[in-house]
């Protein structure tokens, strides 16, 4: 039987690739060390599969059709929005697990949109690059939530989706050791007049909710609170809620946090304990 052995929440900041030396050398190193620590922890957990929960940035899906949540059930490649040092390429996928999660979802009230040959953006490709790729042989399943473009997926639904992923992994007929990665920036404003503002207080409260496994605190981040205190980019914390629920909200610990105004983002990393 497959098992979720751990989880993480991490940022996916593309500006890191365009302006790698914009912040201080010390801040940059904290971020790089944090990614390296999560990759090493994945190795310690002997994980062979990652479910990476990202979000579209109005890159993958347009006004013609805006899916609520999407899962990869076949091949995968990305990032569509190539970055300096991170070019579009095939990503090793776990098609059977993605398909299983999807089919189980159909039976339990989750109408997944599927990517049978799915393209992902940087929200999946960056964590894959830093955390999964260093662990040779790992496969991934990509999940994309509507966090960047309205109508947004409600936080509660993101949580329920995480629970559905957990149940489906448990019933998967294999011996996979799975880590779940929630991918998103904490406070950040994308393209609006407040771009560059970072809110360490908000970021601290989000990380506290995550590391204490506090479902009510997490669901208490309403869209109004997120938009006013964290910014439009912080709507991505839905991916954190989904990952928390998938691992059983058993708490965890902060790996690193840096408010990096040069990268316009509160960059938070945490490890999520898997519930026994």
């Amino acid at each position: 039987m497959a098992e979720i052995v751990g989880g993480f929440v991490v940022p996916h900041n593309p500006i890191m690739f365009y302006e790698p030396d914009a912040p201080s050398a010390a801040q940059k190193q904290v971020v790089l060390d944090a990614y390296a620590a999560t990759a090493a922890r994945i190795a310690e957990l002997k994980a062979d599969t990652a479910i990476i929960i990202g979000c579209d940035h109005y890159i993958l899906y347009g006004t013609e059709c805006l899916p609520r949540y999407v899962i990869s059930t076949g091949e995968m490649d990305g990032p569509v929005d190539q970055l300096p040092g991170l070019k579009r390429a095939p990503i090793a996928c776990h098609a059977e697990l993605g398909t299983h999660i999807c089919r189980e979802g159909f039976e339990s009230g989750f109408d997944w949109t599927v990517g049978r040959a799915m393209a992902v953006d940087h929200s999946v490709a960056i964590p894959h690059h830093y955390m999964v790729k260093p662990n040779a042989g790992m496969k991934s399943v990509a999940v994309m939530l509507a966090c960047g473009v309205d109508p947004y997926l409600p936080m509660k639904r993101a949580w329920e989706l995480g629970e559905q992923i957990a149940a489906a992994v448990k019933s998967f007929p294999g011996n996979e050791r799975v880590v779940v990665i929630g991918s998103g920036g904490i406070s950040h404003h994308v393209g609006d007049e407040r771009m560059g503002e970072v809110n360490p207080d908000f970021d601290g409260r989000v990380l506290a909710a995550i590391t204490s496994g506090d479902k009510q605190a997490m669901l208490g981040f309403t869209d109004d609170i997120i938009l006013s205190e964290g910014g439009n980019g912080a709507m991505e914390i839905r991916t954190f809620a989904c990952a928390m629920a998938a691992v059983g909200a058993a708490g965890g610990k902060v790996v690193a946090y840096e408010p990096i105004t040069e990268w316009v983002t509160g960059m938070g990393f945490a490890e999520l304990k898997a519930a026994a």
């Binding site: 940035h57 109005y58 960047g148 473009v149 309205d150 994308v190 393209g191 609006d192 771009m195 439009n232």
Partner: peptide, 11 residues
């Protein structure tokens, strides 16, 4: 943007 257009797109 004042017409409600997503600012990821305006940027």
């Amino acid at each position: 943007a004042d017409r409600g257009v997503n600012t990821m797109l305006t940027w």
